[in-house]
């Protein structure tokens, strides 16, 4: 697919929607947590890992996928979920623990599941690696179309699961794209402090996978690289480790003071850059760009309204869903 103006306007829309979602969740998160911060307080309790800065990754990669493809995401799932088309109302309701949520309040923000768009996530680092590869294996065995994409952080690329799974993907030429989102940090640990190689894409050669690296955090570049990886997977040429430099603008999780980040490592917000680029390229006028951003905010405001107006689950519902095949 060529990089059409239509597609690029779509990237902008997706990025705005994702940012609006995170900003709205951040605002809700701080309700009840000031002046004294406490994980369990307020309408959105627990840990919250926001995707601000990583929007180009979700927008660019998901645009290269078809509806039959499958995704696993990690503890920072919102940008991928939004780009994939996960139901926004029900995702917002899930974050607020409501009955109308994607999981009826069982999962919360790290555990977003929307089978309607083949989306799953997990809070255990690198868990999604094997799950994605297993999904790809299933499609091969079923002779059905569909590749799998595992979204992980650069920190997760040091888990044993990453290496075991990459080996099997290479060995069996499974249609898997491993998207390593390098936002430079795993909590307070910098990539250079934890990773023996400079680029995780270089590790691909050890596993007979293709390796690609994109350093711009720009959805155009990310899309083109993802398309190549997806094409290889669909053609039976096997897997790719696609490492994307990106950003983590809102800290590891809410409440992270980030005192460990030196001033010279301050990260750049990709949204204004992409907006400028689209205007420069004549894809959008400033007014059109801002109208899309405003529309995104309004859409998320409706999702938040839906969530807030939704009922809480009944306490007895805690006991339901342990096993399939039992009445809920």
């Amino acid at each position: 697919m060529p990089l059409t103006p239509e597609l690029r306007r779509g990237f902008w829309r997706t990025m705005c929607l994702s940012r609006a979602f995170d900003d709205a969740m951040i605002a809700l998160y701080w309700e009840g947590k000031l002046p004294i911060f406490q994980f369990g307080a307020g309408p959105l309790p627990g840990e919250l890992h926001c995707s601000n800065g990583a929007e180009p990754v979700g927008a660019g990669v998901c645009a290269a996928l078809g509806p039959e493809d499958m995704i696993t995401a990690d503890h920072r799932p919102h940008h991928v979920a939004v780009a994939r088309g996960v139901d926004l109302d029900r995702m917002a309701a899930e974050l607020l623990g409501r009955r109308t949520g994607l999981s009826q309040g069982k999962g919360g923000h790290m555990h977003i599941y929307d089978p309607a768009v083949n989306f799953a996530s997990s809070g255990i680092i690198a868990e999604g690696m094997a799950v994605a590869a297993g999904m790809a294996l299933a499609r091969r065995l079923q002779k059905r179309p569909g590749i799998a994409v595992a979204f992980i952080g650069e920190g997760a690329a040091n888990q044993g699961a990453f290496h075991e799974v990459c080996n099997m993907v290479g060995l069996w030429k499974l249609p898997v794209v491993v998207v390593v989102q390098d936002n430079e940090w795993a909590v307070s640990t910098g990539k250079r402090e934890s990773t023996a190689v400079e680029r995780n894409s270089d590790r691909a050669s050890a596993y007979a996978m293709a390796g690609e690296w994109v350093g711009t955090n720009d959805p155009d570049d990310i899309f083109l690289a993802a398309e190549r990886a997806v094409a290889r997977a669909r053609a039976g040429e096997g897997g790719t480790i696609l490492e994307l430099r990106t950003a983590r603008l809102a800290g590891h999780f809410m409440g992270d003071q980030q005192a460990y980040i030196p001033a010279q490592m301050k990260q750049v917000d990709p949204l204004p850059l992409y907006r400028e680029k689209l205007i420069r390229d004549g894809v959008l006028s400033a007014e059109e760009a801002d109208a899309i951003a405003a529309e995104a905010k309004a859409r998320i405001a409706r999702a938040v309204e839906f969530a807030k107006a939704s009922p809480w689950p009944e306490p007895a519902e805690a006991m339901a869903h342990v096993f399939a095949g039992e009445p809920a």
Binding site: G46, G101, Q104, G105, K106, P315, A318, V322
Partner: peptide, 16 residues
């Protein structure tokens, strides 16, 4: 804690 995965939502977790 009953034999269930721990639910996220506050009223569910508080109940168990």
């Amino acid at each position: 804690m009953p034999d269930i995965p721990i639910p996220f939502s506050r009223p569910l977790e508080q109940a168990v």
